[in-house]
Design a protein around this nucleic acid. Structure first.
Length: 467
RNA sequence: GGCCCUGUCGUCUAGUCUGGCCUAGGACACAGGCUUUUCAAGCCUGGUACACGGGUUCGAAUCCCGUCGGGGCUACCA
């Protein structure tokens, strides 16, 4: 039975990189019919925050990346780590270290200036038992793991064989105390306890892998399968880091991106179906996903393609669903004019790439914005001609019955005018009069949505501006 | 600096394992055109890439070696 986990630490906002890791784990589990587990790595008490954990959970739910079993929190299983820590002490593979941060810093500086790789000297490794006990009473200490001097090799499902010389690592700190385990140790213990079979995570963890393997071996755990995903890079080619000013997933949600677009976009960052398909449903991803096809090199995040995909998905959504999703993005006054709103969405949705673009795009339907008179003129047409044309349009429109004010009923008379005076001469000023904009849906469509009364009023306002 | 990973259009990628179908395909972006007025959508067309240098081979994006480039890690963070 395949079991994978997404193991974020709640020390910052969940960003695209984290979501992609979650997605690939989820896809792998669903494809293989295994389990996808969520583990909150909150061993760092100072940096972990409940609000970040809530955010992780909410975002995962919003995306539809459902996990199996209950959420695991490392902070809730401290006694577990303590047990394994003691085991390590018993087998002589762990020891207390009393070196201060200052000493350590000086030590690595000295090594660096000599051109040597910085590595803990192992100074406290051979302290006498009695001395340790004495010093423990009055000095702060951390727990180190005896890293053996040998080569650690492991198989990576994406990269093949990877080798590290553990000699270069030095004895790593695995816990600040019996109750305060650190990442590499806690992860090794939890992967075993949670019966994880495959570790799928970002490439930044590749150098942690030998450390975790060594701890697993010391504890007598079985070896796991590994797959290190290529990093998602920013435009500067550097990895997206949660500590710096990259956008959180939450921000993308607030900008009006759809879950399906984000997932589709992210899956394409490092993976691709066999055929030349860009748009792929979640069901097909699950069906076709395979780690063999995952890219090795990092991928630069391209927001334009995300926007394109989002627009694509938006256009394919049923009207009612768009209305529902738009609720968080528009003034309540618009919501009250439900009929009008639906018509506006129908006509504007092909122009919308993000939900948050809608208010700007469609605002003129609800309130005519002020606009400069000059833009009423089509190309080189002068104001007098425009005025005349607009008057002719108004006259033609007045003849159409209010109850049956639709494209069907006014199109022919307007086209007649347009053919006589020029398409641009008629339609351009009409559009501007109706929308106050230079770019908008077709004036005929706007006319129909606005209705006779409102349309005529707006045209009248334009005529007034011109006279 | 050291260790590890990695290198196909500006970007995401197909093709690399199992050399020939690749005068390198698709998508985003860009440019031009069509679509009875603008914008959008749609359709059509176009430009741009196998990092470089050596091999191996009848033949290399694909195999080998070297060089160069990019990234990650190098915490009592994860």
């Amino acid at each position: 039975m395949i079991r994978v986990r997404f193991a974020p630490s709640p020390t910052g906002h969940l960003h695209m990189g984290g979501v992609r890791t979650a997605l690939f784990n989820w896809l792998f589990a669903r494809h293989e019919g295994g389990k996808f587990l969520l583990r909150i790595e909150d061993t760092d008490k100072n940096r972990s925050k409940k609000e970040y954990e809530d955010e992780i959970i909410n975002v995962l739910k919003w995306l539809g990346l459902d996990w199996d079993e209950e959420v695991n929190r490392q902070s809730e299983r401290l006694s577990l780590y303590e047990g394994y820590l003691k085991k390590l002490f018993e087998s002589g593979l762990a020891y207390y270290c009393f070196c201060t941060l200052e000493e350590l810093e000086a030590e690595s500086q000295a090594q660096l200036t000599q051109g040597l790789p910085p590595k803990y000297s192992g100074k406290c490794r051979h302290l006498k038992r009695e001395e340790v006990e004495e010093r423990l009473k009055k000095e702060p200490a951390v727990i180190r793991f005896k890293v053996p001097n040998r080569v650690v090799a492991f198989h990576d499902m994406i990269r093949g064989n990877v080798e590290f010389n553990a000699e270069l690592i030095g004895d790593i700190v695995i816990a600040k105390s019996l109750q305060e385990p650190l990442y590499n140790f806690a992860a090794a213990v939890d992967d075993f306890e949670m019966k994880i079979t495959h570790v799928i995570r970002g490439e930044e963890h590749i150098s942690n892998t030998p450390k975790q393997i060594l701890i697993q071996e010391a504890l007598g755990f079985d070896r796991l399968e590994y797959a290190h995903l290529p990093l998602i890079l920013g435009p500067d080619r550097k990895k997206l880091s949660k500590r710096f000013l990259d956008k959180s997933m939450d921000d993308y949600i607030k900008d009006g991106y759809l879950a399906e677009a984000i997932i589709n976009f992210l899956v394409l960052l490092g993976w691709h179906p066999k055929e030349d398909r860009e748009v792929i449903s979640l069901a097909d991803m699950v069906k076709e996903f395979s780690l063999n096809r995952v890219q090795k090199a990092g991928a630069i995040f391209n927001p334009e393609k995300l926007d394109w995909l989002n627009g694509y998905y938006l256009r394919s959504l049923p009207l009612k669903i768009i209305v529902e999703k738009l609720k968080k993005f528009i003034p309540t006054a618009w919501l009250k004019k439900e009929k009008l709103l639906e018509k506006v969405i129908e006509i504007e949705k092909e122009r919308m790439r993000r939900l948050n673009e809608f208010p700007d795009l469609a605002g003129f339907f609800f309130d005519l914005p002020d606009y400069p008179v000059l833009i009423l003129n089509w190309q080189k047409t002068n104001a007098a001609t425009t005025l005349d044309n607009l008057k002719a349009v108004a006259e033609a429109l007045r003849a159409v019955p209010k109850e049956d004010f639709s494209k069907k009923t006014f199109e022919s008379s307007l086209m007649l005018l347009a053919d006589a005076r020029g398409r641009g001469e008629i339609f351009w000023p009409l559009r501007v009069a109706l929308s106050g904009r230079e770019a908008s849906p077709g004036p005929l469509d706007i006319l129909e949505i606005l209705g006779k009364e409102e349309s005529l009023q707006r045209i009248q306002a334009a005529i007034k501006k011109l006279s």
